[in-house]
Design a protein around this nucleic acid. Structure first.
Length: 117
DNA sequence: AACCTGACTTCGG
DNA sequence: TCCGAAGCCAGGT
């Protein structure tokens, strides 16, 4: 049976609204483990299709797609653009603008990592 | 069953 | 500020 951490990751990803994105570390931190970014990636790779997760809304901390061209990069980019997410000429997404924030303003965060963003 | 690997990030020197 | 090393953990070999 998967760990709670893994399940929480799935739940969080499912909550990302259309037109917004989240980073691996951000999801990991909210799931309770700031250094569990890799597990987020693993979850997506293994059960994104199975559980119908919006895998394309996850990018790395720089706001760039981690997939390599011809490895899914194009697909992810197109899915995001279709939702209104804009890439600049460096193939980067402006996180200040598109990063998903569960509770903008109030309550704030549970980890220093989230505070930084 | 042990070992390797990875859609990543953070930490310490 | 820059770079190597560690952390995390499930799935594949």
């Amino acid at each position: 049976m998967p760990t709670v951490f893994t399940q929480t990751i799935k739940n969080l990803i499912r909550q990302i609204p259309k037109g917004k994105v989240a980073t691996y570390g951000y999801i990991a931190a909210m799931a309770g483990n700031p250094r569990g970014a890799r597990q987020v990636a693993r979850v997506l790779h293994s059960s994104s299709e199975k559980d119908g997760l919006p895998w394309h809304r996850i990018v790395n901390r720089l706001g760039r797609i981690s997939l390599k061209p011809s490895q899914g990069y194009e697909v992810q980019r197109q899915l995001l653009e279709k939702e209104g997410v804009v890439f600049d000429r460096q193939e980067t997404i402006d996180l200040d603008r598109y990063l998903w924030r569960p509770e903008p303003g109030i309550g704030c965060d549970e980890s220093p990592y989230l505070h930084k963003l």
